[in-house]
Amino acid sequence: MSLDINTPERVTTTSQAYNAVLTAILDGSLKSGQSLSLKGLSDSLGMSAMPIREALRQLEGIGVVEIIPHRGARVRPLSLDDLVDTYDARIPLERALIRRTAARMDDATAVRARAALDRQAEALATGNFAAARSAHEDFHLTLYRAAESPWLFRLCKQVWLNSERYQALTMTEYAHVHERRLEHQAILDACQTHQPDKAEKALERHLTRTVTFLSSAMANEHEEVEHRTLTSRAP
Rank of each mutant, 00 (worst) to 15 (best):
L30D: 06
S35R: 11
S35A: 15
L36T: 00
S37A: 04
G40L: 04
S42H: 02
S42V: 02
D43M: 11
D43L: 14
S48C: 07
S48F: 08
S48Y: 13
R53H: 14
L56C: 11
Q58H: 14
G63P: 05
V64Y: 06
V65N: 04
I68V: 14
P69N: 09
G72A: 09
G72H: 07
G72T: 00
G72K: 06
A73Q: 01
A73R: 04
D81A: 11
D81Q: 11
V84T: 15
V84Q: 15
T86M: 07
D88H: 14
A89S: 14
R90F: 11
I91N: 08
I98K: 03
I98T: 01
R100L: 14
A102R: 01
D107M: 05
A108R: 08
T109Y: 05
V111Q: 13
R112L: 10
A115W: 11
A115Y: 13
A115H: 13
D118W: 05
D118V: 09
R119A: 00
L124K: 05
N128G: 06
S134V: 13
A135R: 07
D138R: 05
H140M: 12
H140S: 08
L143Y: 03
L143P: 01
R145A: 03
R145Y: 13
A146G: 01
A147P: 04
E148K: 09
E148G: 01
S149H: 05
R154D: 15
L155M: 12
K157M: 15
Q158I: 04
Q158P: 10
V159G: 12
V159N: 12
V159F: 05
L161M: 09
L161D: 08
S163D: 11
R165A: 10
Y166N: 11
Y166Q: 13
